Amino acid sequence: MLFVAITACNDGKKEAERMKMEAEKMEIEAKEQKDLEMKKLEEEKKAMEMKNSIAGKAMANEDLSTLVAALKAADLANMLSEPGDYTVFAPSNNAFEKLPKGTVDNLLNPDNKETLQNVLQYHVVSGKITSDELMAAIKGAKGKYTFKTVAGEELTAMMDGDQFVIKDSRGEKSQVVQGNVDASNGIVYIINDVLMAKK
């Protein structure tokens, strides 16, 4: 009888141990599943943010393919796809084509990465400036609103009729051909000339 009782007791212990291990295993699996789902959600959120970011909007616009290639070559695509607030004056493919022959190829050369970064950062301003705000700033500054780019150089915005015009520090002007392209991390204005800082 005692033997049967001990055996039954041992069996009970084994069963309890087995059930405990089973429960722990299920808990681990559930946690792994939850972690996996969270990771998937994070990745989807990141992909969505990337798609709606300045870099994402540029990649989706065929007219900005040269700019996208330049951003990648300069390692600046990440900056414009991560959360933040920027206003970007994005030169169209046509704007790059107006540059002297060989300029774009020269800029895309890995040896000129720093120069390319400076050129591109001259088109980026910290903070989100909508067209209404830009127009108000121009009016408030008596027709010429000057602001600093992330490169530390200045640009001047003005109006030509109902069109925005951006003047670089060389005095060259570029017209905004499409404005107020809203992105998750800022706003984009497509311009028809590449802006350059005075050397």
Rank of each mutant, 00 (worst) to 15 (best):
P110L: 10
E82P: 03
L108P: 01
N112R: 11
S92N: 10
V119W: 07
A55N: 10
D35A: 12
M50C: 09
M38S: 13
A90Y: 06
T87P: 15
K51N: 13
M59Y: 03
L41G: 15
Q121W: 03
G102I: 01
K72C: 05
D75G: 10
L67E: 03
K39V: 10
K101I: 11
N52M: 09
D85P: 05
F96E: 02
K57D: 04
S53K: 00
K72Q: 11
T66L: 04
I54V: 08
N118F: 08
V88M: 07
D75L: 05
K98E: 10
N112P: 02
M79S: 10
S65H: 05
S92H: 08
L99P: 09
D111A: 15
L116A: 04
D63H: 09
E97H: 07
L99D: 00
A90F: 01
K72S: 06
D105C: 03
L41A: 14
V119Q: 06
L71W: 00
L107W: 02
G102Q: 08
A70H: 02
M48P: 12
L76F: 01
A74G: 05
P83Q: 01
Y86T: 00
V68G: 05
V119K: 05
L99S: 06
E82T: 07
M48I: 11
L41P: 06
F89N: 11
K45N: 13
Y122P: 12
A74L: 04
A90E: 04
Q121L: 12
G84L: 01
T115V: 15
M38P: 09
T103Y: 01
G84F: 01
N94S: 15
E97L: 09
L116W: 06
E82H: 07
M59C: 05
K45Y: 13
S92T: 15
M79E: 10
G102A: 00
N94L: 13
M50N: 15
E97Q: 15
N109Y: 06
Y122N: 13
A55T: 02
A77D: 14
Y86M: 03
V68C: 04
P91N: 09
L76R: 05
K51M: 08
E82A: 12
M59K: 07
E114F: 05
M59L: 09
L41R: 12
L64R: 02
L67V: 05
L76T: 04
K98H: 06
D105I: 00
A58G: 02
M38H: 11
E49D: 10
M38N: 14
A60F: 02
A74S: 10
G84T: 00
K46N: 11
D85H: 11
K101D: 13
G56A: 07
S65Y: 00
T66Y: 03
K113N: 03
T87S: 08
L108V: 04
L41S: 14
N94Q: 15
P100T: 04
E49S: 09
M50S: 14
N94I: 14
K98Q: 13
K101S: 14
L71C: 02
L64S: 04
K45E: 15
A90P: 09
D111K: 15
Y86G: 05
N118M: 15
K45C: 14
D35Q: 12
Q121E: 11
T115I: 13
E114W: 02
